[in-house]
Design a protein around this nucleic acid. Structure first.
Lengths: 179, 179
DNA sequence: AGCAGGTGTTTTACTCGTGAAAGATATTGC
DNA sequence: GCAATATCTTTCACGAGTAAAACACCTGCT
């Protein structure tokens, strides 16, 4: 969030961000807290979702970034190079290297060198890796459906649309993913 | 995101999540990707915002969690115990201890022991700490206003409201913040 | 051919956060 | 009063991510 978050306590109605915003308004009444209400909530949602979603994955012995990597391989259906995976998962090169090492040792992915360009490697899912992803994904989506059940279908569509708008802006603004 | 994200490439229209969802649908046509469209976008927005927002803070030599801690002290206007800060910033005890050590060394916060209960400490902002927060916060909010400028005011209100709804659900569902 | 510079990947050194255990003090029940 | 237990905070050992440098290899120029 923009400016620290946290619940002063379970303060009656509203989410924790509402309480935080109230506190800031009391200290700096002239401040425009509008952006905080959006960005703060996005960050807090993300944090809580991560804690929650880690549960189904942890059950399979995977971290989210590991699952993202496997998922990228599964959904493209192709062999990907480490460079591709860096771009697909928005991770640093070092992180991808470490994850590939781990996942290879666990027999979930395999590597082979490129015949033409011996700098590059090609990574693909093993059968075990593919089965693992295919097994986890439905559980994950079912769990998420439950998490979102408090928001009705129209609300979910609206949310997805608005976040998509914002995302286009952010993705345009923030050239220079990583290295 | 629920299941790996990433841009297959700059695939025409829509954000990167749209491309990811298309890929999944091609591989698992029967999958209900609805939750992914919401949760994936929340996570991706959070990731991008963090990268972006770190810039103004980094300029002041602060990480976001450090700023969150200072912000909690500033907006409550009170002395807080480490325990309070754990709850306010949703961090682990170990993390708060480390941050307090750093921030104390930098002269941004001060500690004193409790007279009654010698287990607890009380932390408050120094003048320098208060000035730093008051200096950064407007910059931060101005930056965020710019980031959100692609979404009109009604959209922002709608977004804040929907995220608030979701947040209430998540906060209710996820008892057991940390330790 | 040979080298200058670019690209793909890994290694290195380091920071930060975490869970579990320890440490220090309060509180409760006998 | 004193052991048993609970609470607040810090320490420890470790895993994971990062930036920057190193490495390995290709490409284009001369």
């Amino acid at each position: 969030m923009t400016a620290g978050n946290g619940p002063a306590a379970a303060s009656g109605a509203g989410d924790t961000l509402a309480a935080v915003v109230r506190q800031w308004k009391a200290v700096h009444p002239d401040l425009d807290t509008g952006p905080m209400e959006v960005i703060g909530r996005i960050n807090r949602c993300a944090a809580l979702l991560q804690q929650a979603e880690d549960a189904p994955l942890r059950h399979a012995g995977l971290t989210r970034p590991e699952f993202d990597l496997l998922g990228a391989l599964r959904r493209t259906g192709l062999e990907l190079t480490p460079g591709d995976l860096i771009r697909e998962t928005f991770s640093s090169g070092a992180a991808v290297t470490k994850r590939l090492k781990q996942l290879t040792e666990r027999g979930l992915v395999e590597r082979r060198g490129d015949t033409r360009d011996r700098r590059v490697a090609h990574v693909r899912l093993t059968d075990a890796g593919r089965d693992l992803v295919d097994g986890i994904l439905p559980e994950q989506l079912a769990y998420e459906t439950g998490v979102l059940s408090g928001v009705d279908d129209d609300g979910q569509r609206e949310l997805a649309a608005l976040l998509g708008e914002l995302l286009v802006q952010l993705e345009g603004r923030l050239r220079t993913p990583r290295g």
